[in-house]
Design a protein around this nucleic acid. Structure first.
Lengths: 378, 378
DNA sequence: TTGTACGCGTTATCAA
DNA sequence: TTGATAACGCGTACAA
């Protein structure tokens, strides 16, 4: 197959050698000495004040005298006092942490999503704990439990491919822990959603192909359990319908949209008596594989087959011809999702959940742009 | 002085006695207040045993009677008891969390690295907190502080591009918190390293180009501050030297190796009087851009210009011709790094730090494979 | 403006 | 085999 040159996962033993560094004798002596974990009690006793005064001084409480405050702050700085956030968490019942459940970190869209969440959270003084469901329902449940036990103050979720039950999220709702679903969402729970209009995007993509003159448009779709795929497909169907094109079930192929799936789908489609003249793939990975397969068969793109993908992954602008796609604001979605969580934490009374829908953008590139061709031909 | 933490004498005693003597008034009140936050105290009083018994039963301590244990575990399960990990952390001085400092999550290599860390950590019951330095020294310092304050039990670091001072890591070393540097490492600190042999990889890559007949090989390098780039470059130089090829400084270009940088470098190289006939780029991003630029100028690859990159990013097998590259076991490095952290946590006495060097793999693809061409020509 | 006293939930230590 | 007790470090009513 194409691209098989890149064997991904390493089955070979990669361990080459273990070198023990010369290692200057580490300060074992120093080890004996108890490590200086300075607490407010230490500061208090050394400065002959009470722990509460220290506590207040360190957070600039107005009711502490200027001199006392300065003295305490100076002492703290000098001796490198580090507030124990664990103790504070226990006391305040506040962890300053939000959890994330996603399928796989190492996918371009998800990585950007997380990057956005992390930035927004950090700016607000929050930490972020990331868990991967690996698209498994069981792992998703386990991750939810772990985050719940860790007392995260909110969770951002992009659902695993398999997930059809949502009981594992009820515990958060019962405790008023904000839940924000991103991209792969569900309407089964009354939670915040941050997503794009997948129907519209699927419609736009398909209609674009129709505009380019396609009459037989295939669709590479994902699991219809997940909104992102079912809605994209509905948009595709609606576009066909609007333009009075027949809906041919044999042109709709469902898979997990991996690179291999893309190749398989290509084979299947190219083996049909009546080949499609256009393909709307629900992600870029499968679309790119399909283009590669098409090229290896000598099928001209976009003249014989116009292709559009979804996500605007880096590979989409590397493949030749460059892949038309739907731009999908991953980082923004992350920022907004984190913001929603924090907003709910701030005004706890406002329980109303929102659905935020972001715009997508149709990016027309060579894989579906027949305008030049048209000019040449007629 | 430190261990003394002379905090208030047993102030709880009174209350506890009041609680235990008259029965269990306290717990009922707590239950009224909070939404089903069951604690071991609740279980204890309802089951007429002591909190310590509950605590031990819940963690399968051998010294608890079978019946008691069962009863407690059943009750806990029935009422959905959730251990408060914060309290446990405070008590045990153990957070079960490891921190990560990397440049950017949304880069293929880093995302896979994190994926590996996360999996290994989770399997050991650890959580993972991720921070992005965005290649800024200041942010890296801030992230280190945040992780330190959060009492992480270990840190996995891939250094920011800018970082030249390492004081912000001393605090971890002083407290014997394991530090594991990955990929972008430093030998300034006596910490664990997990890396590849960048010199060897650079050497292999360059020698491969020489084998393909290249005589004037350029190098797109990154900041020489970072080992990964300086060593790749040294490997490049060593390979030229071994094969008696002259070292031409004008063929070595340093940049941040972004896509734009790749295009700029291409322009610069193609503008030379004597063009290079081969390029070794220290990452795939720049290499791919360079190939695109070359193609737009009609320069034939690999015949006129053989190219090899580094990392085996997805784009490397999409570009045409497919990009030769150095495979770099990202996920494995993550798994190993996390494992090292956990190993140090387990046997604290073993302070010796290790350097683990993983194998890379030369992946020859069309962008540098002149064998077909050679056959045709000669 | 400062100090006292207590509890957040868990667990290690000792005692029974 | 079980229980009582004292911390872990912080924050905050309440009191002074």
């Amino acid at each position: 197959m194409v691209g098989s040159t890149s064997n991904g996962e390493s089955k070979q033993t990669l361990l080459k050698m273990i070198v023990h560094l010369p290692g200057y004798p580490k300060n074992e002596q120093v080890l004996m000495k108890k490590k200086g974990e300075i607490t407010i009690y230490d500061i208090a006793s050394h400065l002959k004040v009470s722990p509460s005064t220290v506590s207040r001084a360190l957070k600039d409480h107005p009711s502490i005298g200027k001199k006392t405050k300065k003295a305490i702050q100076n002492y703290a700085a000098k001796y490198g006092y580090q507030p124990n956030t664990i103790a504070a968490s226990l006391r305040n019942n506040k962890t300053n942490t939000i959890g994330i459940i996603i399928s796989w970190i190492n996918r371009p869209f998800i990585a950007s999503l997380i990057s956005g969440i992390e930035q927004a959270a950090n700016d607000a003084g929050y930490n972020v704990i990331i868990t991967q469901s690996q698209d498994s329902y069981e792992k998703e449940v386990a991750n939810a439990q772990a985050l719940f036990a860790g007392r995260v103050e909110g969770v951002v979720i992009s659902l695993a491919m398999e997930t059809e039950k949502f009981d594992h999220f009820e515990q958060f709702i019962n405790k008023d822990i904000p839940l924000v679903f991103v991209d792969r969402v569900t309407d089964q729970l009354n939670s915040d959603l941050v997503a794009i209009d997948n129907f519209d995007a699927g419609f736009k993509a398909t209609e674009h192909l129709i505009t380019q003159g396609c009459k037989r448009i295939a669709h590479l779709g994902g699991s219809q359990i997940r909104n992102v795929y079912s809605e994209r497909q509905k948009g595709y169907i609606a576009a066909l319908s609007k333009h009075n094109l027949p809906l041919d079930e044999s042109l709709i192929l469902h898979s997990s949209l991996s690179a291999e799936d893309g190749h398989h789908c290509a084979e299947q489609l190219f083996g049909l008596n009546e080949r499609p003249d256009g393909v709307f793939s629900a992600n870029d990975t499968a679309a790119v594989s399909l283009i590669q397969s098409a090229k290896s068969k000598g099928i001209k793109i976009p003249e014989e087959l116009a292709v559009i993908g979804f996500n605007n992954d880096p590979i989409s602008s590397i493949i030749e011809p460059q892949l038309s796609t739907i731009y999908h604001p991953a980082t923004d979605m992350g920022v907004i999702a984190a913001t929603q969580v924090l907003k709910h934490r701030k005004n706890k009374e406002i329980v109303k959940s929102e659905s935020i829908v972001l715009n997508t953008e149709l990016m027309v590139r060579a894989s579906s742009d027949r305008s030049i061709h048209k000019q040449l031909v007629g």
